[in-house]
Write a protein that binds this DNA or RNA. Structure first.
Lengths: 126, 126
DNA sequence: GCAATAGGGGATTAATTTATCCCTATATGA
DNA sequence: TCATATAGGGATAAATTAATCCCCTATTGC
């Protein structure tokens, strides 16, 4: 695993939540697990832009941070289910607040974000 | 400026808020501006771990995303003040929710985070 | 003239995070 | 026998973000 060379700040609540929530797919993973998509293959289908590998890595970190648990069923083909821990459940309202703000200001956000990307040749999907 | 090679997802509110809030110091910057620390030098003193340069870059992005405005006073030595826009003010409660969750679960968060870093030789300050 | 203050920014390197590639295992169905 | 589904991971490359270094403006005070 990668070893940090710069020590993280853990001074305030914002630092702390950042440590466990940051990661391109983590919030989405938590949300989908929350909405009942528990199996790795399901999560992958819900998040097709992420590779299987990355999801595994980020799920593992969520598990280490005690936001989710991983249950393995001893069957073939293998079956695994992720669930939110009680701790993990407490962060759902915060994620909901993030998503809600984004939804409420969708038009304006799209504007300012696309304006920034406009100079590039990147085609941004609607 | 850096040109993205991977197109960002802008499918949902979570993607959108991520685009404008992500950046190591942005949330802190917004918060300190909210609490009345408007001048660049003040912000730097409040966030000593960030270099002047990085703060400038992130403030500029916040400005491009219309979360803050920058007012220049034509005096010498120069004086600049950042303020939240009306739009920017709407995101403050969301940031407050993030910080509050982190504060509420400070002990546990510190635990799980430090456990992860424990293997490394990194010294993490209390 | 020189240092300090206040605010900025280009160019480059380092750090970190993601993505890609490829390999493991077992059972079922065509 | 071969492809598919299910779950997982090591090694490496690429992308992205942040940090560093060094430079600029103009005025006041010594």
């Amino acid at each position: 695993m990668y070893e940090r060379k710069i020590i993280p700040n853990l001074n305030c609540g914002l630092d702390l939540i950042g440590e466990v929530l940051y990661g391109k797919w983590k919030i989405r993973l938590l949300w989908f697990i929350h909405t009942g998509h528990k199996r790795p293959s399901e999560l992958q289908r819900k998040i097709p832009d992420a590779s299987r590998r990355v999801l595994n890595v980020q799920l593992k970190e969520l598990e280490e941070h005690e936001l989710v648990t991983r249950k393995i069923y001893p069957v073939v083909p293998p079956k695994v289910e992720y669930s939110l821990t009680e701790f993990g459940k407490t962060v759902i309202p915060v994620i909901a607040a993030l998503g809600q703000w984004g939804d409420e200001h969708e038009g304006r956000l799209r504007d300012v974000i696309l304006r920034q990307v406009a100079g590039t040749d990147v085609e941004v999907p609607l």
